[in-house]
């Protein structure tokens, strides 16, 4: 099952598949990818996991994710794509 929720030049393409929510921010002008991802993380029904399809490693996103208690890791992707898996970690993990 795959349902596209949003597809525009500011927020990218957002859809939900069997493994959870995905956002494709490839081709967006910086810093729109970062804003789109963080905006999505603020949505109440996004759950605890999000897969990001990016065209570059979003270094500046990481401190913002940490600030919100989210963790990330790079996962295998097609050539030319940087794919990240984000999950809501224990917010206190950063303060341990």
């Amino acid at each position: 099952m795959m349902a596209c929720v949003k597809d525009n030049s500011e927020d990218g393409k957002v859809w939900r598949s069997q493994d959870g929510w995905h956002v494709d921010v490839r081709g967006l002008q910086p810093p729109n990818p970062m804003v789109a991802i963080l905006r999505l993380l603020e949505m109440p029904d996004i759950g605890q996991r999000l897969v990001v399809h990016h065209d570059r490693e979003p270094f500046f996103l990481y401190p913002e994710l940490a600030e919100r208690g989210w963790r990330w890791r790079l996962v295998p992707a097609e050539p030319g794509e940087v794919r990240l898996e984000l999950w809501l970690g224990d917010a206190s993990a950063n303060q341990e």
Binding site: L74, E78, P79, G80, R83
Partner: peptide
């Protein structure tokens, strides 16, 4: 084809 080592795709690494 999927790139198995994800860092290979992460171009523009930090200095």
């Amino acid at each position: 084809m999927m790139i198995v080592d994800p860092s290979q795709n992460a171009k523009g690494r930090l200095l």
